[in-house]
Simulated scan of single mutants.
Amino acid sequence: MIDAHQHFWRISRGDYSWMDDSVAQIRRDILPTDLAPLTEAAGVTGTVLVQAAPTVEETLFMLSLAEDSTLVRGVVGWIDLEGDVQAQLDRIAHPALRGIRPMLQDIEETDWILREDVVAGLRKVAAAGLRLDALIVPRHFGVIDALAHRVPELPIVVDHCAKPVFDGDDPGLAWRDGMAALAAHPQVFCKLSGLANEYGPGWSAAALRPVFDHVLACFGPDRIMWGSDWPVLELAGDYAGWAACAQEMAAGLPEAARKAIFGGTAARFYDI
Rank of each mutant, 00 (worst) to 15 (best):
T70S: 12
V119I: 14
L31P: 08
G178F: 02
A41R: 14
A96G: 12
R176F: 11
A146H: 10
A52S: 15
P231H: 06
T47F: 03
C190Q: 06
G263V: 10
V215F: 04
P37T: 06
A196W: 02
D213Y: 02
S228K: 00
V118K: 11
E255K: 13
A87K: 09
A266W: 00
L195R: 03
P171Q: 13
V165A: 14
D229G: 08
V158G: 09
S69V: 01
T70A: 12
V137L: 12
L38D: 01
D106I: 10
L81E: 06
D90R: 05
L216N: 06
A53G: 10
E248G: 10
G252N: 03
G43K: 10
A66F: 01
M103P: 11
L65W: 09
A162D: 03
D222H: 12
P138I: 13
D20S: 06
S228T: 13
D90E: 15
A257M: 12
S69T: 02
S22Y: 13
F269A: 00
Q25T: 15
G83R: 09
I261L: 05
D20T: 05
H94C: 02
V143L: 07
L35G: 04
I224Q: 00
D15W: 05
A52W: 09
A251R: 14
M249H: 04
A120T: 14
C218A: 14
D213W: 13
V188F: 03
S193N: 11
F189T: 11
G99H: 05
R139V: 15
G227L: 03
P152D: 06
G194N: 06
R73E: 13
H149L: 13
P221D: 15
K163F: 10
L104K: 00
A52P: 10
A42Q: 07
R28I: 06
L135I: 12
I92A: 00
L122T: 00
G168P: 03
V118Q: 11
D117W: 08
D213C: 07
P152R: 05
D106L: 12
I113W: 02
I2R: 11
A120W: 08
V165Q: 15
E40A: 12
F166T: 08
Q187G: 11
A206Q: 15
L71T: 03
G178C: 02
P254N: 02
A246F: 09
F189I: 07
P155A: 05
D21R: 10
T70K: 09
L104A: 05
R115L: 09
D213F: 04
V215R: 04
G178L: 03
G227N: 08
I144S: 04
F61P: 00
L38N: 03
L173D: 14
P54S: 08
V125I: 08
V44P: 01
H149P: 08
G99L: 02
W112K: 02
Q187A: 13
A236T: 08
G241L: 12
H214K: 09
K259C: 15
F141P: 03
P164V: 01
I107T: 07
I144V: 15
